[in-house]
Write a protein that binds this DNA or RNA. Structure first.
Lengths: 406, 406
DNA sequence: TAGAGTTTGTTTACTCCTGAACTAAGCAGA
DNA sequence: TCTGCTTAGTTCAGGAGTAAACAAACTCTA
C-alpha cells in the first residue's frame, strides 16, 4: 500500500497536478520549466504520479525540431472540490473537478443571521455532498463577504452577514470530516482568476469586483495578499468624499456609498430616475433603454471607482486591472465614466495599465471558493496551513489504492 | 583553500549572518527557530562559519531551565556595505558594517541632471571607497527617488531627477567591479526598517515617508513589495482632491500637492504665514514658536495624509504604520490633524492599527541603501537576482583565505 | 542517407536539509 | 544527592532536489 516510502505529503507532486488542471496537458519538459523544477525531478515525480494513477500519458506532440514531447494529462476522476458561496440571502454550491470543469451546481435560500445558521449550513452542505458521484472529494472551499483571520482556522468577521468571530471553518471541518478552507470571497475569486483566468498570464494584478458591494483583491507574485488579519483588499471603505453620505461603517463618503448596488439605487431614486420603490433592475432597464439620466448614474459610479482604483494602481503598480462581479453586466455604462477618469488620474508612467473586464457567470463566486482547494498544491509556502496539507494528502492517498509498484 | 566542497553560494549560511547582524548575538537554537531551519542544519552551518572565521562563539547564557546556550556573534570585520542616497542636489554615502553599525559617512553637492552625472557619481563613489579601511566590501546599495525596474539591472526612471531609463546599475557595476543594488529610496528604507527597526517585529507594515516629497513602501510577509515595474509604494500621486492644484504629473489634487515640503511652503506663502520668499525653515520656526496659522498648515497636511493612509490601511490591512522622513521633525504639528482624521476614516475593524513615528537621523536614507546589500542574504527567493548572488558569494569568499580545516 | 542540430527525457553522483534518536548541561524538588 | 524535567546541541540515516552527462527521437541539410 505504501507506495511512497516517506509519509510526507509532497508539495511538488501536487503542484504538477494543479498545473495540469489549470493549463491542460503538458510535457515533462514544459512542466519542469513552468514549475522551476529540474527535468530530472520531473522524471521522478511523473513516474510516481503515473504509478498512482493520478495522471496518464497522452499522445505525442508533433516535434518542435527535436524529440517529440509525450504529453501528460490529468485523470479527471482523481478528485474534486466543493465551493460554497455565502451571500446575505442564499448559498450557492458547486462541485469542480480537479481539471477545473464544473460538475454540478446548486443554489438555495439561506439566512446567515439565523441562530441555527452554522448547523443549517453544515446540513445543506452534507446534502449537497451526498448528492455527488464517486469522485474522491478533496475538500471544501468557502467564500464569505468578510475578513477571515486565516484560511485554515476559518474564523470570520462579516458585518454584512452579522457575523462576529464565526468559527465556520472549525465547525464545518468537525461536521464534515473534510479539509475546509475559508476565505474572503473576492480573494477566492482572485485565486480562481489566477488558476483559470487572466491571472494565468500576470503575476501582479489588481482584481476589482462590482455588484452588491465593491471589493478588491491584490495579487503579487502570483499570490493573493491577505494582510495581517485577512482583511486586505477592502476598498469599499476607502474614504472618497469627505462630504458624502454616512456609511454603515460609521464614516462619511466611503467608496461603497457611491458605487454599490444599493448606492446606485439610492441615487437613482433621489434623482427620480426610478420610482421610490424600484430597484436595481429598473435602473438597469432604464439604462439599457437609453435613458441618459440612468446611464449617468452608472457612469458617475464609474468615475468614482476609477479614482480609487487609480490610487491603488499608483501604490501597487500591477500589470493589469481585472474587473469582475455581477455589476460588469452594466460595464458599458460604468465604462463611460470610468475610462476617462481612470486614465486622467494616472501619472504618465502608469497610464498604460490595461483594464480587463471578464464576462461574468453566476457560479463564478462559488467556483472561486472551490479554486481555494484546487489551488492548495501551488501553496508551497504553506500559507493555507494544516488544511492545505490535508488536501494534498487526500489527493495522494485517494490514488494509493490503485497503484502498486514492484 | 576550498573549504566548502561545492562552489555554490549558500543562502542559509548568509541568512545566519544577516540575522546576527540585525538582532545581535544568538544561540544556535534561537537561530534555528528564527530562520525556520532544523537544529541539525544549524550545527552544520555554524561549524562551517566558525571555521571560516565569519562568526565566533561568545560566552554562555544563563540557563533558561535547561542546558545553557552558547551564543554566536558576528565577526564585525567580516564585511561591510556602502549605501548611496541620491537627492536632487546632493549625494550621501555611508559605509555600514555587517553588524549594522555605521562606520563612516559623507555628503557632497551633486547635480543629477548634469550630462556627466553617471561618470561623476562613479568617480565620487570610487573616492569614497578608496577612503575606507580594509574591511572587505560586499557591495554597493543605491537609493533613488524613482522607479527601478529591477534591483539587479538598476535601470531608473526618476522624474524629479530628470532621469529616464538611466542605467546606473550597469554603469556603476562596470566602473566599480562590485555588486550594485539599486532601489527606490523609500523601499530601501523599508528594508532597513525590516532589518534594524520596527519592521523586525512586524511582517506586514506600511512605511510612509514625509519630507521633500511623500512616499510609501509596502511590506508583506517580511518582503518589500516592488510591483510590476518597481513602482509600488507611489502614494504621492494618489488623487485626493479633484478641485486641487495642478501637479507636475499633469493631474489635479495629487497627495503630493498637499503634503510635500514645497506644497507646505506654497500654502503658507499664499496665506501670508511666511513671506513670499521664505522657505520651509521659516514655516517650521513659526510653528515651533506657536503661530497657530503655521501649525495649521502642518495639521491640514496631516489631515490629508491621514485620509490617504487610511485608504491604504483598509486595502492592505497592515499590522502597523511606520512614519519616517525629514518631515517627522514636525510630527507634533502634523499629528494634530493626522490622528483624528486617521482614526475617523478607518472602519471599526481597522481602528486599532498603531502608527509609529521613528526618530529621524540624517543618514537614514543612505543607511537604507546599504541595507539593501546587507539584506540580500535574507532574499532566499532570489528577488535581487544575480547581484544578490554576487554579494553572497563575496561574503563567503572573503573569509576563505583565513580558515583552513583538517 | 549520413551527419548535424535540437529538443525531450533518463541516469547518476552528489548536495542540502530534515526527523528522530541521542548526548550534554543546567534546574527544581523529594 | 538522586531523580526527573527542560532546553541546547550533535549524530545519523535517508529523502528531496540538482547538475551534468547521456540516451532518445525527431528535423533539416547536404
Amino acid at each position: 500500500m505504501t507506495i511512497h516510502p516517506t509519509g510526507r505529503a509532497d508539495v511538488n507532486r501536487s503542484a504538477i497536478l494543479a498545473h495540469l488542471g489549470a493549463h491542460g496537458p503538458a510535457s515533462r519538459a514544459q512542466l519542469a520549466r513552468a514549475l522551476s523544477l529540474s527535468p530530472a525531478l520531473m522524471t521522478q515525480l511523473s513516474k510516481d504520479l503515473l504509478a498512482d494513477g493520478l495522471i496518464l500519458e497522452l499522445e505525442h506532440q508533433p516535434s518542435q525540431g527535436g524529440r517529440p514531447a509525450r504529453m501528460l494529462g490529468l485523470v479527471a476522476s482523481a478528485g474534486s472540490a466543493i465551493g460554497v458561496k455565502i451571500a446575505d440571502d442564499h448559498v450557492a454550491f458547486v462541485e469542480v473537478g480537479i481539471d477545473g470543469t464544473v460538475l454540478r451546481t446548486s443554489s438555495e435560500q439561506f439566512d446567515p443571521s439565523a441562530s441555527t445558521m452554522l448547523a443549517d449550513l453544515a446540513q445543506r452542505l452534507r446534502a449537497f455532498i451526498t448528492g455527488g458521484g464517486d469522485i474522491p472529494l478533496l475538500g471544501v472551499g468557502v467564500g464569505v463577504p468578510g475578513d477571515v483571520d486565516a484560511q485554515g482556522t476559518g474564523v470570520v468577521n462579516a458585518p454584512s452577514l452579522d457575523w462576529t468571530n464565526a468559527p465556520i471553518g472549525a465547525v464545518l471541518r468537525r461536521e464534515l470530516g473534510l479539509p475546509v478552507l475559508v476565505e474572503n470571497n473576492v480573494n477566492a475569486l482572485a485565486v480562481a482568476e489566477r488558476l483559470y483566468g487572466l491571472g494565468r498570464h500576470h503575476d501582479q494584478a489588481l482584481v476589482v469586483t462590482i455588484g452588491t458591494g465593491v471589493g478588491a483583491a491584490i495579487m503579487l507574485d502570483g499570490t493573493v495578499v491577505r494582510g495581517s488579519r485577512g482583511g486586505a483588499g477592502e476598498i469599499g471603505h476607502m474614504p472618497v468624499d469627505p462630504e458624502g453620505v454616512r456609511c454603515r461603517c460609521g464614516n462619511r463618503g466611503c467608496l461603497e456609498t457611491l458605487t454599490s448596488e444599493s448606492a446606485l439605487v439610492r441615487i437613482a431614486r433621489e434623482r427620480g430616475v426610478i420610482g421610490p420603490a424600484a430597484g436595481i433592475a429598473a435602473l438597469r432597464d432604464a439604462a439599457a433603454a437609453g435613458d441618459p439620466e440612468a446611464t449617468r448614474v452608472f457612469s458617475e459610479a464609474g468615475h468614482q471607482l476609477a479614482r480609487a482604483v487609480a490610487g491603488l494602481v499608483h501604490v501597487l503598480d500591477p500589470e493589469i486591472v481585472i474587473v469582475l462581479g455581477e455589476g460588469t453586466a452594466d460595464w458599458a455604462h460604468w465604462s463611460f465614466g470610468f475610462e476617462p477618469a481612470f486614465r486622467a488620474a494616472l501619472m504618465p508612467a502608469r497610464r498604460g495599465v490595461p483594464v480587463a473586464v471578464e464576462t461574468w457567470q453566476d457560479d463564478r463566486w462559488a467556483q472561486g471558493a472551490a479554486a481555494l482547494v484546487l489551488a492548495t498544491p501551488f501553496d508551497a509556502e504553506g500559507l493555507t496551513g494544516e488544511q492545505g496539507r490535508l488536501v494534498r494528502r487526500r489527493l495522494v492517498e485517494q490514488a494509493a489504492g490503485g497503484g502498486d509498484t514492484a
